[in-house]
């Protein structure tokens, strides 16, 4: 392994635990019927956003997708306001106007989860234009799944970022199923290979290996910051749940799901930490603390006020000064 320093691993492991803890709690609440709307769990994919976000600063930007809780937690969102948003409370990140699929916090560089597959790709490219115009060293990361790579937005967005050498990192979480359709059915070429079509580096890593993701993202983010252009990283991973919470996933075999559960990204970091002097008792304590944090966050999130129906159409338009009648 890997370029990561040992003292950095423990906080990253904690971030992975927090994603798993958040998803577990949210799933439970959704199954109880107390959360409106859709819920897409990212359990099984935690290593990807944690390994990528380790290289991002607060003023770097990410675009996310429908399965975005992990991306936004790793970028700095707090579970309490996330739960408030999932509960559609005014104390949520989007004041209850977005929900799980559209959660955003521009102050954290989170320009949005997105309900449209592939849509975040050209948006991240556009963020790269801003950075180039302003002459900053910021980087934009676009997270998307294997389904998105067959959309036109993916092709156009990568090509544009490539020809202008924009500071963007395209991170594909290949969990092998676009809802129900297998990646092997949906395309005749691999995902990392597609980078060649745009003349940019394409890297394939074990997305359940935090250290592998960390290293690939480190190189890609550094390349972007130096003005050398975008990289496509394919992280092979798996979602343990169905496409949405409640989807039984009839398109996958029990054996396949079980095989991937054995490749759980968390125990791999857990044993690494134990080998590097962290005691099992300390890790147990951390796990318990995270579980407790999520319980409290959900409780507080739920306690926020519900939006006033009188305010239903707030923010359709921004207020204007001179330019608007």
């Amino acid at each position: 392994m890997a370029t990561i320093k040992a003292d950095k691993v423990l906080p990253l492991y904690r971030d992975m635990l927090r994603i798993r803890g958040f998803e577990g709690k949210a799933t439970k609440l959704y199954e109880q019927g107390v959360l409106p709307g859709f819920l897409h769990s990212s359990v099984g994919q935690e290593a990807v956003p944690v390994g990528v976000s380790a290289h991002l600063d607060k003023d770097d930007y990410i675009t996310s997708n429908h399965r975005g809780h992990g991306h936004v937690l790793a970028k700095g969102m707090e579970p309490e306001r996330m739960f408030a948003e999932l509960y559609a409370r005014t104390t949520g990140y989007n004041s209850g106007r977005g929900g799980s699929m559209h959660i955003m916090d521009f102050s954290l560089g989170i320009v949005g989860a997105n309900g449209i597959v592939g849509a975040g790709v050209p948006i991240a490219t556009g963020a790269g234009i801003s950075f180039q115009v302003n002459g900053t060293k910021q980087v934009a990361v676009s997270y998307f799944g294997d389904g998105a790579v067959n959309s036109g937005a993916f092709h156009e967005g990568l090509n544009l970022a490539a020809i202008w050498s924009l500071p963007v990192v395209f991170v594909c979480e290949n969990n092998f199923y676009a809802e129900s359709v297998p990646q092997s059915y949906a395309a005749k070429v691999g995902i990392a290979e597609r980078a060649a079509a745009y003349g940019i580096p394409g890297v394939r890593v074990d997305g359940n290996d935090l250290f592998a993701v960390y290293d690939a993202a480190k190189a890609a983010v550094a390349r972007a910051r130096k003005g050398e252009g975008p990289t496509l990283i394919e992280c092979q991973t798996f979602r343990w749940s169905g496409h949405f919470v409640g989807d039984p996933g009839v398109y996958r075999t029990k054996e396949e799901v079980e095989a991937w559960r054995l490749k759980d990204p968390l125990p791999r970091v857990h044993s690494w930490l134990e080998q590097h002097g962290v005691t099992a008792a300390d890790l147990d304590t951390m796990e318990a603390a995270v579980a407790d944090e999520m319980d409290r966050a959900a409780e507080r999130g739920a306690a926020g006020p519900r939006p006033d129906p009188q305010a239903a159409t707030d923010n359709v338009y921004a207020p204007e000064g001179v330019a608007r009648a």
Binding site: T63, V111, I123, T125, G126, A127, I129, S130, A140, L160
Partner: peptide, 13 residues
């Protein structure tokens, strides 16, 4: 799609 998509991304950043 990317012309408008990139314009959206640039506008919000």
């Amino acid at each position: 799609a990317a012309i408008v998509g990139a314009a959206v991304g640039a506008a919000i950043t």
